[in-house]
Design a binder for these strands. Structure first.
Lengths: 362, 362
DNA sequence: GTGAAAGCGCTAACAG
DNA sequence: CTGTTAGCGCTTTCAC
């Protein structure tokens, strides 16, 4: 049996020489009686190895509890099997759901996920893009609801790292996004079809515009639906607010407290806002949907509890899809290349917060 | 000027030779007219380099847009500057807040965070512990509200990877946890001090027991507070439920609908449950706190909106602390070694959901 | 089908 | 203070 051909014991590096240390590829090779090259081939499935050899290598690896060192492997191959995910919020339902979907899809492909939360603002973002993401630690990045600057984008792309965006078009990059105009239109049409004519809208403030003009697009859809049936838009029926329950609560109070023209329905740009609106109506002694119908967008985890009608989007699916698209780009087996932008599904879910207005009932 | 001493161009590995490729340490060395060793020292701050040399190295690096390859660095040093975080949920406020705190603290120390969500159940957990975490990709791991098995723990510890737990004692490991018994006791005492004698408790179902017996401990605190003032525990005033708004809603309906003994106060084991209880009371036409006082634990992001009195815990801080403790263990400069378990802060926050019971008013 | 050997990019003795 | 050099653990030609 050939002695270990490794050069005399090194003194450098941590080498993890304590007990419990990890065995390396050489140990497996020795135990299996083959070369490290063969171990590598056998374990990675690349290259030809006889069935018999493979079996003994696998057995040896198992016996030693061998796991490849991803660093060594990455250094040799240039690929890390790790994806960077940049996200603007961690504690908001929508974002954490996208993250959840992406994480589980990546894990199932054997990929790790390295997380960068850009919520803090400040230098954080710059440091993430100029240092962290460039350390060659990730093979690609998923940007969630973040409009990357040309600089950030070319930095990544220039290094050959694919980028996929969730939430809006990024120039020259694969993106997944929902058609906000259509979604808002659908929600408004639902109200219209019930017979409502005086429909208010709670939309986002300008602060949220950076996220791909989501507030504006939803407002456009709302207005479009109204105009399509000949109703002119009444600016008095619009309120801007934060995308939160509290924001929706305050906005709805304004709308419903208007003595001149109280809307019979409210379309809120998000479910959290819509839930706030439901709570506001209740506090004012108004019945939902008896006195006012309310609809949102999202299908938030609380929406079912509140009986909120909504247009569902599926954030977890969005995360999952983003991961799958990346896998395709990274492993160009079958060129399933779709278009640059993939439209995301949505679906009207009618619950108990919307009904015909009293005026339209017999 | 010495020619590049690198051996003749290799043909192996991907080497990223396309345009936009990353320059390596040799390129910086050449440009600065020094050796790679000096570049390494200058950029890492370890070892002595003259101010002048350092400046020129930094300039060269900047000019070339050089960023170290973390893989190469890790391979050579044995440390990755990457922390693994295992977490049972991503979309629940508490967990994502802890994660947020940990992420931002790690980032500020120059560490990456690799995320493993164990929510899916199934083989996921095994594969994470047996493969992902052992690939030598992380220097340490933070376990959030997860009771690691002895096997999982020794696997990690045996490889010399520190582990810190948030949420409960893990054998032989640094842990951060809140004293659930005391927290529950404090909440109950608040109700007691207001004059309530008939205090119900909404606690967790057995499913949640695995998380360090949190439901049981909170129940013990509740019962302890009662007994301390001579009130015997009434099992009829206990309801088990999910830790959700919906769960709390259902449980509160049961409690408040009891025709024989309607409690004047409810202590819920979490704010979400408490919010559900508030909603249930309202739906039954009961005034909070007029007819029933309600208190929770957490200081959830929605609690302020609902005027919920609560005992705050600070999840973001918990995440941050976990990260800091890890940094201490990883960089044993100043031996600030505290005890194995660190008690976490909590604080009673009185809002508008608790008041004296009617029976106690004049 | 398998082994030898070079090399991925960086760091850490060691000498000077 | 700085350069030389060996080597971290793995993958991949290239030759057999």
């Amino acid at each position: 049996m050939p002695a270990r051909s490794r050069k005399a014991g090194g003194t450098i590096g941590s080498a993890l020489s304590r007990e419990g240390a990890m065995s390396d590829i050489q140990a497996v090779a020795d135990l299996a009686g083959v070369s490290t090259a063969t171990v590598s081939r056998a374990l990675s499935g690349k290259g030809n190895v006889s069935e018999k050899t493979r079996a003994s290598v696998v057995a040896a690896a198992k016996q030693l509890g061998y796991v490849v060192s991803s660093n060594a492997s990455s250094l040799a191959t240039g690929r890390t099997r790790n994806i960077g995910v940049v996200i603007p919020f961690l504690t908001k339902w929508f974002y954490s759901s996208v993250l959840e979907g992406a994480e589980s899809a990546l894990l199932s492909h054997g990929y790790d996920l390295t997380l960068y939360n850009l919520g803090g603002g400040g230098d954080e973002r710059r440091s993430v893009f100029e240092h962290f993401l460039l350390r060659k630690r990730v093979d690609a990045v998923i940007a969630i609801s973040l409009e990357l600057t040309p600089r950030e984008l070319t930095g990544l792309l220039g290094m050959g790292k694919p980028v996929v965006g969730v939430g809006g078009p990024l120039p020259g990059v694969r993106t997944l996004s929902i058609d906000d105009v259509e979604v808002a239109q659908l929600a408004t049409e639902h109200l219209l079809s019930l017979g409502h004519r005086s429909i208010a809208h709670i939309g986002g403030t300008k602060d949220y515009e950076r996220d791909f003009h989501l507030p504006t697009n939803r407002r456009i859809g709302y207005e479009g639906a109204l105009e399509a049936v000949g109703i002119s838009v009444n600016p008095g029926l619009f309120q801007a607010a934060d995308f939160t329950i509290e924001g929706g609560y305050g906005a709805a109070k304004q709308l419903l407290g208007n003595p001149r023209e109280r809307p019979t329905a409210i379309f809120a740009a998000s479910d959290e806002m819509a839930i706030g609106a439901i709570l506001a109506a209740r506090d004012m002694g108004l019945d939902v949907p008896g006195d006012v119908s309310i609809i949102g967008i999202d299908d938030h985890e609380l929406s079912d509890f509140f009986g909120l009608s909504t247009v569902a989007q599926f954030p977890e699916l969005q995360g999952r899809l983003a991961a799958e698209i990346l896998m395709e780009q990274l492993h160009p087996d079958k060129r399933t290349r779709g278009s640059l932008n993939t439209a995301l599904p949505y679906e009207l879910i009618v619950r108990s917060s919307t009904a015909r207005p009293k005026s339209a009932r017999q």
